[in-house]
Amino acid sequence: MLEKMKLLLGITGNEKDGLLQFVLDTVTDMVKNYCHMSIDEAIPAQLENVVVRMAVDMWRAEGYGNETNSNAEVTSVKRGDVTTSFRPVGGDFNANTGAGGADFIKAYTKQLNAFRKVGW
Rank of each mutant, 00 (worst) to 15 (best):
L2K: 06
M5C: 06
L2R: 04
G63I: 06
G119H: 09
N113P: 11
G98R: 11
E73N: 13
V74T: 11
L8I: 03
E48Q: 13
F93M: 03
W120I: 12
P44R: 02
S76K: 07
A95I: 15
G18D: 10
V52I: 12
N94H: 08
F93W: 10
E41G: 06
V89C: 00
R87F: 00
T28N: 10
T75L: 01
S38M: 08
E15S: 11
N49R: 14
D81F: 13
S85Y: 08
L24W: 01
K16I: 04
S70M: 01
M54S: 05
Y108M: 07
L24P: 00
T109E: 13
M1R: 06
T12V: 06
K16M: 12
I43S: 04
L112A: 07
W120H: 10
D25I: 07
Y108F: 12
G101V: 13
E15A: 10
E62Y: 03
K78E: 01
T97N: 07
L19T: 14
P88G: 03
V56I: 08
T109A: 11
G13W: 06
N96I: 05
N113H: 14
A102C: 13
E41R: 10
A95F: 13
V27M: 05
I105E: 04
V82C: 09
A42M: 07
D25G: 10
R53V: 05
N69C: 08
K4V: 00
N14F: 03
D92P: 05
Q111P: 08
T109N: 05
D103M: 12
Y108N: 09
E48I: 13
E15L: 04
G18A: 15
I39P: 02
K110P: 01
P44H: 04
A107W: 06
F115G: 05
M54G: 08
G100T: 10
R53S: 04
M1T: 02
L20C: 02
W120V: 14
N94F: 06
K110N: 05
W120N: 12
R60Q: 06
H36N: 15
E3W: 00
T97Y: 09
E67T: 15
N33R: 14
A95H: 12
G100S: 10
E3R: 02
K32P: 11
V56A: 14
M1Q: 01
E73P: 05
V89F: 00
M30Y: 09
R60D: 03
V118F: 14
M54T: 08
I43H: 01
V50H: 11
F115N: 03
I39V: 14
F86E: 00
G63P: 00
I39G: 04
N14D: 15
L47I: 07
N94A: 10
Q111D: 12
N66H: 08
K6Y: 02
E48L: 08
Q111S: 15
E62D: 03
K106Q: 14
V51F: 02
P88W: 06
